[in-house]
Write a protein that binds this DNA or RNA. Structure first.
Lengths: 221, 221
DNA sequence: AGAATGAAAATCTGATTGATTTTTTCATTC
DNA sequence: GAATGAAAAAATCAATCAGATTTTCATTCT
């Protein structure tokens, strides 16, 4: 486990500007048609599809790693079939997410497609790495991702990372030191930043947690 | 003046998914080539270009409204010529921005391309409308826009709006009531939301200002 | 019954080309 | 040095087609 979109661990293969999952179907809102018995979004299947796409993988790519057929995966992603627990574990491992992520949907209220309450966010990284990231959008997918990130006092990015994404953030609380292409920036409450393509790393040199809003486009989770 | 990206006043004509200004050239970072004497980004010209594009206008479209030639506008946008004050006033009017916006660049430090300090954001809307929006990214353009928005106590969106964008936000302080396609959502500190294509409006029914981070893709400013 | 497969059918994506639009360049005038 | 206008260059768009990806579905498995 122990993910970190703000870290180098996660590597995105997809090209920029593909516009692939730019709010088209991978999203949730809408859910128009009415035949399929299980909704595919805001569900495990929808998550898997969004995750797969954020990596630029095809059904075949993922099916191979899962040692399952493509047809089955297609059905799972569209909610027409349920994956076994073992499959979910494998998927979680592949995407470096806690298994709990797939079961921490917001309660199935009417507001689910639009609103995420502060106390029911889905967390991507578990404690212990010094960084806790949780999703602020109702589901994976869309043109960008908003993440609520808490960097523990003293936490440090294991190694610099580069991603084919555009990223920006805002410091809500505490302070965080960011290194962008070697340059050092001390960000305090109210400061914001943006980068795209640079080599980045971070440290929380303060003695309180740093709380940031971090936006990434296209999504990496 | 009195703009409001969170309001219906601003109408975006561009199609979705064009991927036009998706972090390609409209951005800043880089500034590689070395001939042109004036840098075009982080400058008035760069702003005008980004604004024009966010509306889906061509040089011709804007030149007509400015009653200037296309060649001249091209030069202005690339910093090879300076617009007269009168032109800037017209541009500000066209894009519904305060003239000051074009002169409130961050100080020309090394961090300018990456960081915006809390005390030197560029403000898009002036006081008095109940909504103050300021830019959290170093410049206009890019795949999305992060805005710091303060909704005064009692402020209300003049009329519902629809935009061809994907938008998400996070409540830092206070609370804001959002109407998405008729449904009412009371958002409090720590809550977040996302919508795309729906009809939206808002009110701050609380007695303190609501402070939000608001993300819009593609940019509307 | 529902998971899972495999293969055919449908859909989507990417590359190509040429026509059109948009942008840049530049010699010239204000 | 601003500003124009027209030629040159570059970027965009629509149509097309081949190949890749996804969906569907009849069938088998548990």
């Amino acid at each position: 486990m122990g993910t970190a979109s703000c870290c180098g661990e996660r590597i995105v293969l997809m090209k920029l500007n593909t516009g692939t999952n730019a709010g088209s179907d991978s999203g949730t809102r809408g859910e128009a048609g009415g035949q399929p018995p299980v909704r595919s979004s805001g569900s495990i299947g929808g998550d898997i599809r969004a995750l797969r796409r954020s990596r630029g993988w095809t059904l075949t790519d993922l099916a191979e790693r899962l040692e399952r057929s493509v047809g089955w995966l297609s059905q799972v992603e569209r909610g027409q079939s349920e994956p076994a627990l073992a499959d979910i574990r494998t998927v979680a491992g592949l995407f470096d997410l806690p298994v709990s992520f797939f079961f921490s949907q917001s309660p199935d209220t009417a507001e689910a497609p639009y609103v995420v309450r502060g106390d029911s966010r889905r967390t991507m990284s578990d404690e212990g790495k010094g960084l806790v990231e949780s999703l602020l959008s109702p589901d994976l997918g869309g043109a960008f991702e908003i993440v609520h990130s808490v960097f523990a006092a003293g936490a440090r990015c294991p190694e610099p990372f580069v991603r084919p994404t555009e990223e920006a953030g805002y410091v809500i609380e505490g302070s965080l030191t960011l290194f962008i292409d070697g340059e050092r920036f001390e960000l305090n409450q109210g400061d914001s930043f943006r980068f795209a393509g640079e080599t980045v790393s971070w440290v929380n040199e303060g003695d309180v947690p740093a709380v940031l809003i971090w936006v990434i486009a296209p999504p990496v989770y």
